[in-house]
Design a binder for these strands. Structure first.
Length: 157
DNA sequence: GCCAACGTTGGC
DNA sequence: GCCAACGTTGGC
């Protein structure tokens, strides 16, 4: 079982949106970066777990835990002309972008603030903290995951 | 295949 | 709003 971190902007889609959905399940779509696409398509499996991270907001940080409930499949928004994520170069025959389905399994209370992550020597190599990091789906190593969990107050649903 | 220009991300 | 960093685009 592998671990990941999924970024979102809470004003667009975040913890509160997931909480409002039946079973707290959502399609994670709209990813338009090839490296992240490859993770969604080829590596992220049912049963894997992920941190939910809020970016571009008042207090960036890890706010919840996700479980993958459906592995990579073609992102329907890519072939929907009415979607803001529509991509004319994608087609049903030759999908370019992929989505997975996730379930919110817990919230972190308090959240793990970015400022605290940055101050943690155990996270020196954490990809999230690399300068200029812009990847919206990224791998979390087993040791990073284990460490972060010990730093968290996890409130399961 | 190179690389400059451009658009986007994301913390502050 | 600023701006550093990076991915993508497109001319050549």
């Amino acid at each position: 079982m592998a671990h990941w971190l999924f970024k979102s902007e809470p004003r667009e889609f975040g913890l509160d949106h997931l909480l409002a959905l039946p079973g707290r399940v959502a399609r994670w779509d709209g990813v338009r970066n090839y490296e992240a696409r490859n993770l969604l398509r080829d590596h992220i499996q049912v049963g894997d777990t992920a941190f939910l991270y809020h970016s571009s907001c008042q207090q960036p940080g890890i706010v919840g835990l996700l479980e993958i409930v459906r592995a990579g499949y073609p992102d329907p928004t890519a072939v929907d002309p009415d979607s803001p994520y529509w991509d004319a170069r994608s087609s049903r025959d030759q999908p370019r972008w992929y989505a997975v389905d996730v379930r919110l399994t817990a919230r972190l209370n308090p959240a793990l603030a970015l400022s605290r992550l940055r101050a943690d020597p155990a996270l020196r190599d954490f990809r999230l903290l690399r300068r200029g990091n812009r990847l919206s789906v990224l791998p979390v190593s087993p040791s990073e995951w284990a460490h972060l969990v010990t730093q968290s107050r996890i409130i399961p649903f």
